[in-house]
Design a protein around this nucleic acid. Structure first.
Length: 297
DNA sequence: GAAGGGCCTTTGAG
DNA sequence: ACTCAAAGGCCCT
């Protein structure tokens, strides 16, 4: 069946994919909070540039504020972790019932390789919050303090650097509705801006070394640390246990409700090794959306 | 050292 | 108008 397709603007390029990718679940599964859907296009920022992405047969249509489209494709490839062999991960997880179900539903959901500072700042805003509020908070922060980018008439904002948010301070951030998260974010911003913590260097550190360093920051406990490790610091064995993952582990794998965080973490890492991060993402997303649809009944 | 409890911001749902 | 919950962490017993 033929569908009328508007012509692509001249600077749209097609990026072929040889990996499973589903944009919606990847960008709306609580790992990144600033991508926005407008019709079939997804708008967001990676590095120094704005992007618009559209899922099409066999790949993505890409628009970017970058002058070099080859650099843009490289940057997206990195961001989307297309270097991970997701089908191989699926094969290893297929023996497990809840995971097989989650993979069937959300095939193509990928872990993202985010910028460590934005990732840390984002997850400092998550405790006892919810995804829609977290997204609103981070949007305010970026619009207030971030550099403006434009792409095809759309305005997007880079996430502000640590020194900019250190200047903003707790007051400025609380003023944006961040609540007590504003204090943690301001404090972390100062530590990073002062060079006391080199986030990028943690990419080449071990899981334990990197985690120990993150746990020094006020507002960073086991869970936030594991999110930053998994979503931005190359630690695919990171296994953040939040409310939803805990429910999944209790109901589907027989763990006691009050199991200690570190016992659950060790169990997951022993069982799934460096697939633990993907396991967590599928359990989280599956469980969260399942409960949401149950409530809608 | 482990375990339990109170507290912290804001927002939306019921 | 009230209570509950939301990708938790900290501090005190």
């Amino acid at each position: 069946m033929d569908v009328a397709v508007p012509p692509l603007s001249p600077d749209t390029i097609f990026m072929p994919l040889d990996q499973p990718l589903e944009l919606k679940s990847t960008l709306e599964s609580g790992q990144a909070f600033r991508w926005q859907q407008d019709g079939e296009w997804w708008w967001g920022v990676v590095g120094r540039h704005a992007y618009a992405l559209r899922q099409v047969d066999g790949g993505l249509d890409v628009r970017s504020s970058s002058r070099s489209m080859s650099a843009a494709v490289t940057e997206l490839h990195d961001f989307l972790r297309l270097d991970d062999d997701l089908d191989a991960v699926y094969q290893r997880l297929a023996v497990d019932q809840p995971l097989a179900k989650a993979v069937e539903r959300y095939r193509g959901m990928r872990i993202l390789r985010q910028e460590p500072w934005e990732c840390l700042a984002s997850f400092l805003c998550t405790p006892t919050s919810n995804i829609s509020r977290i997204s609103a908070n981070l949007k305010s922060v970026a619009e207030t303090y971030g550099e403006t980018l434009t792409l095809d008439g759309h305005r997007l904002y880079r996430f502000p650097g640590a020194s900019r948010l250190a200047e903003a301070g707790e007051k400025g951030l609380r003023g944006l509705g961040l609540g007590f998260h504003g204090k943690f974010l301001a404090q972390a911003a100062k530590v990073v801006a002062d060079g006391q913590l080199d986030l990028m260097a943690l990419r080449s550190a071990s899981y334990q070394e990197a985690k120990t360093a993150l746990l020094e920051l006020p507002g960073v406990g086991d869970k936030v640390a594991d999110c930053v490790l998994l979503f931005s610091l190359e630690k695919l064995d990171g296994f953040p246990v939040d409310r939803w993952v805990r429910r999944a582990l209790v109901d589907w794998y027989g763990h006691p409700e009050k199991a200690k965080y570190r016992d659950l973490l060790e169990w997951a890492q022993t069982k799934w090794g460096s697939d633990a991060g993907y396991v967590q993402q599928y359990l989280f997303h599956h469980r969260r959306l399942q409960d949401a649809s149950d409530r809608a009944d």
